[in-house]
Design a protein around this nucleic acid. Structure first.
Lengths: 112, 112
DNA sequence: CATATATATTGAAGGTTGTCAATATACAGC
DNA sequence: GCTGTATATTGACAACCTTCAATATATATG
């Protein structure tokens, strides 16, 4: 470990400013829920063919909870909805996922 | 969008099982806080030379809050502490960060 | 031992999040 | 219009998270 005279370091400015830290932590918080990860995974797998009742059947939560998580993902721009008659089919927005992935990756690169 | 007769899809199994989803969402939740991201960033930048009072001076939270976030990061294995006299110097565990990065990356790959 | 400093822990208060029953809304078919 | 089905929204409750003042612990020095 590095030698040092005493505490503290003269200055110590984060490369990551508060605004960018908030932005990335928001990104991460959206993904940081098992149901939302599983929803994204299912949408990626069955792109454009998944309605809410499919998700409810596949996941261990009730319909209002599924809708709640879909709303969070929708508001984050990660998924879109398309109504067809009674059903609403959801899809992943691959480019939005990609953008978020790049932000997260860039952050990891700084830490490594 | 894909054509379908009606609701719902015959079966719809997540590639991501509940246990793996929980694991990755736990990983993400640890990072999903602006102060923790800034702490990691500072530790990466001044590896092994950063004590708690340095962090307190650089961040907009009080000392107990810094210690609280350090504890979360320590318990996740992402950082280690080494006491030298009165001060405790923190370092990033690069390989633990790397491991987490790989899990997160692998998940993103599935979504893209 | 007494004092001073650095860090950790405790406990309390406030805020946010996750879940679901109940209800509302939107659409299709009669 | 009425009925039935799919989804969204509301509201309530519980669990969890974040923060900090106060306090405890550890260490160094006189």
């Amino acid at each position: 470990m590095a030698e040092r005279a005493g505490c503290c370091l003269p200055k110590l400015a984060p490369r990551l400013d508060a605004a960018e830290a908030r932005r990335i932590s928001n990104d991460l918080a959206i993904l940081a829920h098992p149901i939302r990860l599983q929803i994204l995974d299912l949408l990626a797998q069955y792109q454009g063919q998944v309605c809410v009742c499919d998700l409810e059947a596949a996941l261990p939560v009730k319909q209002p909870t599924v809708s709640h998580h879909l709303k969070i993902l929708r508001e984050a721009g990660l998924i879109t909805a398309e109504r067809q008659g009674l059903w609403i089919y959801y899809s992943i927005c691959c480019d939005a996922v990609q953008t978020m992935r790049e932000r997260v990756m860039a952050q990891f690169a700084f830490l490594g």
